[in-house]
Amino acid sequence: MVVKGVDRDLALRLDAIRREHGETVHVDQVAEVVRAILDTMKGDLNAGDIKLYREIESLADYIHAAKAEIAALRPGDIKNEFIATATDELDAIVGATEAATNQIMDAAERIEGLAPMMDSEVAQRLTEVTTQIFEACTFQDITGQRITKVVKMLKEIEGRVESLVRALGSEMEGPGEKAAKALVTDEDLLNGPQLPASAADQAEIDRLLASFD
């Protein structure tokens, strides 16, 4: 075997050096031994192979570093918490603006219904005003379409993050930073409006307050 051959050459040279110089060896002689050892490796690894090996090794180091950095970003949290929350919030905006638009239109239609009870000039002006209200309500369609577009993009990002998590392994799915936090700060309490499904209504708030009495 090559390794045994190298060991034998090394042992012979070291014995010869010891016989000639005792336990103190000059640096040049160490270099000569190393060169001799490298010479014995000819045919097994050439300079090109070593360069390639080093490149692969540095690539592996780079991948390990990138993986660690990605893990620090917690892609599992991005997929499971942030994107999911963002899409839910956007869906809630669409629902809320649609409901508000319908309420505005209900009111405008009721106002329009009063027109026949008024003289023609006032009725005409009333109709003009309600027309402007109907025109303004078209914003809901446009904002709805824009938000739907954003939700589609977020879903696309979510899919790609999911692929990344799958490719990089289960360590990417660590517990969220929030879950690890023991203390609740004032900032943690600022959650903004809640989604309809999780929002407490006034009656629930009143019951909760009453429970302190």
Partner: peptide
Amino acid sequence: DDYKTMLRIIRNL
């Protein structure tokens, strides 16, 4: 139109 609100707006107009 797939937006009911838009149908209502056009109907009113």
